[in-house]
Design a protein around this nucleic acid. Structure first.
Length: 195
DNA sequence: AGTGAGATGGCCT
DNA sequence: GGCCATCTCACTA
């Protein structure tokens, strides 16, 4: 029996949480009542105030980023490029606005056919939100309880040898921080967003 | 395989 | 007004 990850899981340092989330099961009760599940394959850590690639760099606090200033274990979903949403998991306490971007999922086959028909995949942060129908509506939810409708189940731990570490994607503007090794994915998994 | 542009709109200064 | 934690398609070679 997989249990829901407790709130304390998210209070560790953000890069560790990003790695520990690999192999865990993200669950969402969709608006039509279906339960969607996917194994987390790829993540990126965003280190808040000191991280030029993070939305909260320098302590910026705006309407968009308010969820990052909640305690660890909340969702942070933002709208980007005029057409995509991206899902994050907030980490640490409200004094540390850090988060883990969920970049790829491996679908677990419990989806209704209506979703399978759509020619969409979950191997990218924008695509997985579109596939599951995640939007601003699901921003700020409590991931440590099923009652929120969006939660994460404990599952396997991925061995260090099976975790590939790389610089993050799409943050070239961030100077030195663009090189930080904060992207993690499961080795030899076909759902990784890019090599 | 690698590069580049377009879609498209909220966010930030 | 410019930028952006993306994605797809077209083009070059």
């Amino acid at each position: 029996m997989n249990k829901v990850l407790p709130k304390e899981f998210y209070f560790n340092n953000t890069a560790s949480v990003a790695k520990k989330l690999l192999g865990k099961i993200l669950c969402y009760k969709a608006t039509d009542g279906a339960i969607l599940q996917g194994k987390i394959i790829e993540t990126e850590a965003y280190l808040g105030i000191k991280d030029a690639a993070a939305h909260t760099f320098g302590g910026r606090k705006t309407a968009r980023t308010k969820s990052m200033y909640l305690d660890g274990g909340h969702s942070y979903i933002y709208f980007i490029y005029g057409m995509y949403y991206c899902l994050n998991v907030v980490t640490k306490t409200h004094e540390h606005p850090e988060a883990v971007l969920i970049r790829a999922l491996e679908p677990i086959q419990t989806e209704p056919l209506s979703l399978k028909k759509k020619d969409l995949k979950t191997n990218g942060p924008g695509k997985l939100c579109k596939y599951w129908g995640l939007t601003k509506e699901q921003d700020g939810l409590e991931l440590w309880t099923k009652k929120s409708g969006l939660w994460i189940l404990d599952n396997q731990d991925i061995k260090p040898k099976e975790i590939i570490t790389r610089p993050r994607i799409g943050v070239d503007y961030a100077g030195e921080a663009a090189q930080w090794p904060l992207r993690f994915y499961i080795k030899n998994n076909s759902f990784v967003s890019k090599l």
